[in-house]
Amino acid sequence: MTLEEKQQEIIDEFSIYTDWMEKYEYIIDLGKSVKTINEDLKTDDRLIDGCQSRVWVASEFKDGKLFFSADSDAIITKGIIALLIQVLDGESPETIVNADLHFIKDIGLQDHLSPTRANGLLSMVKQLKKSALLAMR
């Protein structure tokens, strides 16, 4: 699946929910069930200290592709991270650096990306892209 197709899949998934709480219920379930970062990888150098929730990111570069794991102490943040990883995992560094992650806006979660929201998510997207940039070197 292309990055675009993966985004569309999430947009379609969310389009069935008309109520905000249903959307968040889905994100919470995702946050609860997703396999994220290993506890021993939750080190301070992988911590993106947002104002409210803490977010850890680790990446692995294998056969020209990047693979991510991440975690957060807030379950909603974790659910949104899971969505991000779903889209970016296994892509080439070039694709990740240039990715327009419009699905976040399309499913109505853009407020989580506002710098003032300060939940670490914006920093996390930056961090994912930074890992990709580093892998390109």
Binding site: W20, Y24, C51, S53, I75, I76, N119
Partner: peptide, 22 residues
């Protein structure tokens, strides 16, 4: 066991404006 940010986000979606954080 719950993060204040999660509670605040869900309250917001139900029309309740509170502050969360430090």
């Amino acid at each position: 066991g719950l993060h204040p940010f999660d509670i605040g986000t869900l309250l917001d979606k139900q029309g309740i404006a509170v502050r969360t954080g430090h």
